[in-house]
Computed example of a mutant assay.
Amino acid sequence: MNRALLVGAAGAALLLNLTGCFTERQNEGAQLYATHCASCHGDQGQGLQRLIPPVAGVDFMAQRRADLPCIIRKGLKGPLVVNGISYNQVMPGHEDLTDSQITNLLNFLHTNWGNQNQPYTIREASELLGRCNGSDGQ
């Protein structure tokens, strides 16, 4: 009986540690956006008039889903159209973010500010990052 109690206590402790781990990362996408994206795309994803495209309520995320992980990792240069408006500025890449951070950032963007897109899995984001030699396996 003591052994069962010990195993149960160990299981509960492990569960609490895992829950803490996930809780700490729960708002990671929002935090990453605030740190890496908001200065250009706006604190509510509104963009900057015709200079920098919005990320709130945009068609671009659904249309270019397979490209987004690499756009975040490597950046983007050249013309693009978002919600029917043309933009042509340079977006810097974020080589310092891990695959899981890019996944969390994209999932934040995909589910906020009127965007209702399917979330990414880490596996999907890593596979897509592999297309641009951008996956770090983390």
Rank of each mutant, 00 (worst) to 15 (best):
G134Y: 04
Q44T: 15
T23E: 15
R65F: 10
P92F: 10
A4P: 12
C37Q: 04
W113S: 08
F22E: 09
P69T: 07
V7S: 07
N83I: 02
G45W: 02
I71G: 04
L80I: 11
G137V: 07
H94W: 11
Q118V: 14
M1E: 15
G29K: 02
A13Y: 08
L18A: 04
G84N: 03
H36R: 11
A66S: 12
A4W: 14
R64A: 11
Q46I: 04
F60C: 00
L109D: 01
E95P: 09
V90H: 10
F22H: 13
L48W: 05
A30F: 07
Q44D: 15
N117D: 10
M1F: 12
I52K: 08
D67W: 09
A62D: 01
V55K: 00
A9F: 14
R50F: 14
V90E: 10
A66Y: 09
C40V: 01
N133R: 12
V55F: 03
H110D: 07
Q63R: 02
H41V: 04
I102S: 00
G47W: 06
Q49D: 12
A56F: 06
G47P: 05
N107I: 07
T103C: 04
Y120F: 09
L106Y: 02
Q49P: 08
L18Y: 08
N2R: 15
Q49N: 15
T98W: 05
N83W: 07
P54K: 04
G84L: 02
V90G: 12
L5M: 15
L76S: 13
R25H: 14
T121N: 10
A38N: 05
L129H: 05
E28I: 06
D99P: 06
D96F: 08
N27M: 14
G78T: 03
S100R: 08
G75K: 07
N112G: 01
L97N: 00
L51I: 13
N83P: 01
Q26S: 15
N112H: 04
P69W: 00
K74G: 09
R3I: 13
F60R: 08
G42Y: 03
D96K: 09
E127D: 03
P54H: 08
I72E: 00
D67Y: 02
L105G: 02
Y120G: 06
Q118H: 11
C21L: 15
P92W: 09
M61Y: 01
Q49G: 10
F22Y: 13
L15E: 07
G20W: 09
G45F: 00
K74N: 12
K74E: 14
Q46L: 05
H94D: 10
L68P: 06
D59P: 02
P119F: 02
I102Q: 05
C40Q: 00
H41T: 00
S126I: 05
F60V: 05
C37D: 04
Q49C: 10
M61V: 03
N83V: 05
F108K: 01
F108I: 05
P79H: 09
I52W: 12
P119D: 02
A62R: 03
S86R: 13
S135K: 01
T23P: 10
L6G: 10
A12Q: 02
L129Q: 05
Q44R: 15
G75L: 01
K77R: 14
S39C: 11
G11F: 09
Q63A: 04
Q101A: 12
L16M: 12
Q31I: 11
